[in-house]
Amino acid sequence: MKLLSFVTSEGTPGVGALTQAGIADLSTLVPGRTGLSPMRTLLTQTDHAEILGAATDAPVLDPESVILQPPVPDPSKIVAAPVNYLDHKEEMSQAVHISSLGVFLKAPSSLTPPSGTVRLPYHDRRFDQEGELAVVIGRTASHVPEDRAADHIFGYTCLLDMTMRGGEDRSTRKSFDTFTPMGPYLVTPDEVGPVDDLELRCWVNGRLRQRAALKDLIWNVPRLIAYISSVMELHPGDVIATGTPAGVGEVHDGDHIAVEITRVGRLEVGVSSTGAVSSPTLGANRGPKPPAEVTPVR
């Protein structure tokens, strides 16, 4: 099942399931004025079987009549895994990886919808693309053992962890507005299958920059959920960005970025530097050193 969040032409937020006929409108499953997006309300109050049953008889919307939003527009947190592929560790000349670094947080306000635009804030700093698989939590998770982690996964989606290079803290460099494109769909585990069978690819202007098997994650999805839930309680709709492989590289005004993951979907966004100003912080040329040239795809 592929779920999605949308806004109608009248500006009303909604949630639906992608079907052959169009978008099955599931908005009637969620009460209004909960303070949460329809998707988060759905994940909090409804199980897979109920959603699937409702989609069978729901009114169908024309996909052209709505504007897609990030699958979960309002997660309570986005937790990200730094240096979670060995080839990325090598290209960044890092001495350590996730086992030493733990995880970091990205601001939920950095989310941007599929087909949106990443806006570069400064004209004097380097910005890179990082394609990633994202996991969306479906049940509250606290101190979850690895062998029970799958019970807490609602689904998967594509994510771009846009990054300013430099010595500032990761949560700063990766949390600018629009720096977390996500989508287009939230795909349930039964449709995705084993994560180890998935492949991630990322292009900039049609040139393949990143290609990796998800089985090459240093910390796999169950281990990430077990560790993160031992640090902080995870809630339905929370997002885990699992890390990026080698092939990160600089992006510029006018670029087009696409990330595609087997059976999960394809996310595409543009890049703009309109309104960019000088950076007020002094982290340039500090911190991890990205490669001057894009690491060749293996």
Score class of each variant (00 low, 15 high):
Gly116Asn: 09
Met164His: 03
Pro75Ala: 04
Pro63Gly: 10
Leu234Tyr: 07
Pro71Gly: 07
Ile67Gln: 15
Leu186Val: 07
Asp87Cys: 03
Ala80Ile: 02
Asp62Gln: 13
Thr244Asp: 03
Asp169Ala: 15
Ile153Cys: 06
Ser230Thr: 10
Lys174Tyr: 05
Pro145Arg: 04
Arg40Leu: 12
Asp147Val: 09
Pro108Gln: 01
Asp47Cys: 13
Leu68Glu: 11
Gly155Pro: 07
Gly102His: 12
Pro121Ile: 04
Ser109Asp: 14
Leu234Trp: 10
Gly138Pro: 02
Thr188Trp: 11
Asn84Asp: 01
Ile240Val: 04
Val15Gly: 11
Asp161Tyr: 07
Arg173Leu: 05
Leu18Val: 13
Ala241Met: 06
Gly32Ile: 11
Lys2Thr: 07
Pro194Gly: 08
Tyr122Met: 00
Ile67His: 15
Arg173Ile: 12
Gly206Asp: 03
Pro31Lys: 15
Thr117Gly: 05
Val204Ser: 10
Lys77Gln: 14
Thr180His: 04
Pro75Tyr: 03
Lys89Trp: 13
Pro82Gly: 10
Asp177Val: 12
Tyr156Asp: 06
Ala107Glu: 02
Arg173Cys: 04
Glu191Trp: 13
Val195Thr: 13
Asp190Ser: 13
Ala212Asp: 08
Val204Lys: 07
Gly283Lys: 07
Gly116Lys: 08
Asp62Asn: 14
Pro70Asp: 07
Asp161Leu: 05
Ala24Trp: 09
Arg40Tyr: 05
Pro82Cys: 08
Glu132Phe: 04
Leu120Phe: 04
His97Met: 05
Gly243Ser: 07
Ser230Ile: 05
His256Tyr: 12
Phe6Tyr: 15
Ser110Gln: 06
Gly138Arg: 06
Val96Ala: 09
Thr19Cys: 04
Glu191Ser: 14
Gly155Leu: 10
Pro280Lys: 11
Leu26Met: 09
Gly116Ala: 02
Leu26Pro: 07
Gly53Ser: 15
Ser175Phe: 03
Asp124Asn: 14
Ile153Gly: 00
Ala107Phe: 12
Gly247Tyr: 01
Asn285Thr: 11
Val297His: 09
Gly16Gln: 09
Ala95Cys: 13
Ser230Gln: 08
Ser278Pro: 02
Pro31Phe: 02
Asp87Val: 00
Pro113Gly: 02
Ser100Val: 03
Gly22Phe: 08
His143Ala: 15
Pro38Leu: 10
Gln69Ala: 14
Arg125Asn: 07
Leu214Ile: 09
Thr262Ser: 13
Tyr85Leu: 04
Gln210Arg: 03
Pro82Asp: 04
Met164Phe: 01
Gly287Leu: 00
